[in-house]
Design a protein around this nucleic acid. Sequence first.
DNA 1: TAGATTGTTAATCGATTAACAATC
DNA 2: TAGATTGTTAATCGATTAACAATC
Lengths: 213, 213
Amino acid sequence: MPRRENISMSVIRRLPRYYRFLTHLKDKGVTRISSTELSVKLGLTASQIRQDLNCFGGFGQQGYGYIVDQLCDEIGNILGLSSRYKTILIGAGNLGRAIASHMQFEDEGFDLIGIFDSSPSKTGTRINGHIVIDTTELENFCEKEKPVMAILCIPREGVQSIIERLYGMGVRNFWNFSHYDISMRYEDTVVENVHLNDSLMTLCYRISNPNDK
Amino acid sequence: MPRRENISMSVIRRLPRYYRFLTHLKDKGVTRISSTELSVKLGLTASQIRQDLNCFGGFGQQGYGYIVDQLCDEIGNILGLSSRYKTILIGAGNLGRAIASHMQFEDEGFDLIGIFDSSPSKTGTRINGHIVIDTTELENFCEKEKPVMAILCIPREGVQSIIERLYGMGVRNFWNFSHYDISMRYEDTVVENVHLNDSLMTLCYRISNPNDK
DNA sequence: TAGATTGTTAATCGATTAACAATC
DNA sequence: TAGATTGTTAATCGATTAACAATC
């Protein structure tokens, strides 16, 4: 059971995919799967899958394969999905509202406890059971509720100052949908960027340049 | 001017970031930048930036650096942002509506020409100037309008059958927000997945396992 | 036991970084 | 010309793949 330190991002980014697929298999009633079968379904090599899993432990049985249920639970544990991280969302525009209503945060370790916006046209409105709070209330709210993670769905211009305020209130983890690249000038922060425009541009490139992969 | 074939995905995924940052510099009135300055701002190495750019041509001037305006335009061209790709969106739920209203498709080569949903509660409603069309009309619409790209904002279960219908109507490019991994059984397709749940799980992992990068 | 499939080490491949000659 | 910075080749590093011994 090696449990290596410093797992690479390449491996980490594949974990949710494994988890998602194994959950699906479990729901279908499949009990056992080999790395070779998995590799075919996921378009990876069996070698890679075994390497990835063995970063965390020996979950398989030689000559048999992996027990779907068990492996699924193990990966869920590795991902830390049963944690509870108090989460706030900043920005109740189209995107913020969609994220708030669309995501099942609870299944992935996060509890959405507040939604903020600075526009009077948004504050007071209700999104999925949450009343949108004025951003001026941020400090009061954080002091009382101690959120540890913030989802940023605000325009580029507002990001830097919001981050500084949140960092000051102890928030260290950010799921960032803004066009702004949060630079790593802060210690101990975890930032996951979702740059939808970048994703779309990549797609544009790939359509426009069909020779490349 | 080498213009290598088969640019790697690693390089392609950095292009939008370069473009975004250079646009920002341009707006700020910066005219000239060196790979070293860029590397500091973007948290990359100067070497990597020069390598990346030289996949497409020698855009710099020795002893001087890069002209921001010019480099920005070049990358825009490489990305193909001035193309016009007729695009439809399937699924007018929270996420689909947000994507339709939030993204500036026109700036990135795409023209949104239709939004579809199969629920009678959604069809007929208006999103950002588009009336939501019943999915049963998909074939009629495609025959007339010939879209080349589809944005998928529907639940997992519906994806496979929609893709088959769209593929049959000549759609080859997909921006996929569903939990479903579109497998590459189709030729000549370009698929860009945006798995928000995967992204969130990765974040959960990184918060739960602070030792790793 | 024989067959299958893992865990793990070694080999290969690709991407990043370093170095430097070319040149503006 | 001297200084600066690119374009490009060579060296390094990391990730993926192949191979196989361990073992269920």
